[in-house]
Amino acid sequence: GACRVSMSMTEIRAGFTAIKANIQSRDPIRTLSILSHPQSLHKVKSSDRCCITHHLFTFYVDKVFKHCRTEDSFVNRKISSIANSFLSARRKLGQCREQNNCVCGEESTEKFKQILANYEGLNVTSAAMKSLGELDILLDWMEKSR
């Protein structure tokens, strides 16, 4: 179902852009993708977007950000900014899902399972850093599918 949630994509994008090079330099495994393997997010049907976006926000909040603490105070501050923005957005998305009864289709459920499998296939710190480094894939997909 449609979920129009106002969230500060600009702020999240700015926060990520500020640390992208630093985060991606910590990801030695370039041949693998967590979000795009085997299929791109762009294959997700529009009716499933609300549900999979909520799943992905939960994935980042529950599994990714907490394992991305670095020795760099600036990077940690930006990760905090992104994490708190995701928390705020996920809350709105959750409310929206309930009101609109956005159910997950079979395809998107499968897609999200694949993302979790890709994540669990690596050790937790590498998986978290790779996922954070792929944040622009998620942001691009969200902006494209507005």
Binding site: F65, S73, S80, N84, L87
Partner: peptide, 19 residues
């Protein structure tokens, strides 16, 4: 130092210094 809702709920109540 500051602490957002994320730090309270998901990062053991950690605090982040403002350099």
């Amino acid at each position: 130092e500051f602490q957002g809702e994320y730090e309270r709920e998901y990062a053991n109540g950690s605090w982040i210094p403002i350099s």
